[in-house]
């Protein structure tokens, strides 16, 4: 297809001897201008930094050395491997719990927010509220809920669930809106009710989308759960990592925990892909 079109282009240009100069293209001009000004700003800021007594190149070299040491000589000192494993499990449980809560609640509201399954008023009402929830980051929600619940796992669960709901309602309702209108029309024309249509047509057709969005959110929640361990004292591997880095100042332990988290992320990613392929 592409070879054909390029061939015909070649023949076309042969027919026109003096090709007109390329016309001014505003979009590409703006793009180039932006990139260029960003480059200039970057160079300028590096030159104008206040470096104090730090010798930049030596410092970069040492930072790299530190990183290499962190990951190549990773080692547990203050915790045992079992402790760390348990902590990772706590973190994953936090992510799982908030994702499941979020998914169940979002499924219902997602149906009400989908334009093809709900009234326009209700749909825009929910979508507006959800946009507000999503605009505030997860960490902030946790800190907001820490006021009534106190810093700790309860605030983390409520706050993370809240943001998950906001995220998943949008994702779910958009998956529902993508569905074939005719399918819903056909069931309506046969006298089927709203719940019939939802469970017999809408959910079976959007199952794989729902699954992949939920996994996506689970991954995000895993990351958030690590951060919450440190920021909100929710426990888990995030808290251990926080202790290792700022209390014990033990780089090798930080490295070991990072490896462990990476390993779990890999396992989860593979199993998610596997599960999705099975659903299709």
């Amino acid at each position: 297809m592409s070879s054909m079109s390029s061939k015909s282009d070649g023949e076309m240009s042969k027919g026109i001897p003096n090709l007109a100069k390329k016309p001014f293209d505003k979009a590409s001009f703006v793009l180039r201008f932006t990139l260029l000004s960003m480059l200039v700003l970057t160079i300028f800021s590096f030159i104008s930094f206040d470096y104090k007594d730090i010798r930049v190149f030596a410092a970069i070299g040492e930072a790299i050395n530190n990183l290499v040491a962190m990951f190549s000589k990773a080692q547990f000192t203050n915790f045992t491997f079992q402790d760390a494993l348990l902590a990772v499990l706590v973190t994953i449980c936090l992510a799982l719990l908030t994702t499941v809560f979020g998914a169940v609640i979002a499924l219902f509201f997602g149906l009400l927010a989908a334009r093809n399954l709900s009234s326009p008023l209700l749909s825009s009402l929910i979508k507006g509220g959800v946009a507000f929830i999503r605009a505030v980051p997860t960490v902030l929600w946790v800190l907001i809920f820490a006021v009534p619940a106190g810093l700790g796992s309860v605030a983390a669960v409520i706050g993370m669930t809240f943001h998950s709901i906001g995220y998943l309602i949008k994702a779910y309702s958009e998956s529902f809106e993508e569905l074939d209108k005719g399918m819903i029309e056909a069931l309506r024309s046969s006298g089927a009710g709203w719940w019939h249509i939802v469970f017999q047509a809408v959910i079976p057709s959007s199952k794989s989308y729902l699954m992949s969005w939920t996994f996506m959110r689970f991954e995000i929640n895993c990351g958030a759960a690590v951060a919450m361990g440190a920021a909100a004292g929710a426990g888990g591997v995030g808290f251990d990592m926080f202790m290792a880095s700022s209390f014990y100042l033990d780089m090798r332990e930080v490295g070991a925990i990072t490896w462990l988290i990476l390993l779990f992320a890999l396992v989860m990613e593979t199993s998610a892909t596997h599960l999705k392929n099975k659903l299709k």
Binding site: D180, G182, M183, S190, G191
Partner: peptide, 18 residues
């Protein structure tokens, strides 16, 4: 809904749950 039960409908694009 009860009246629609008595009216069957078929469509150009079949409108099945694929």
């Amino acid at each position: 809904q009860q009246t629609r039960v008595k009216i069957g409908m078929i469509f150009q694009h079949y409108n099945l749950v694929e």
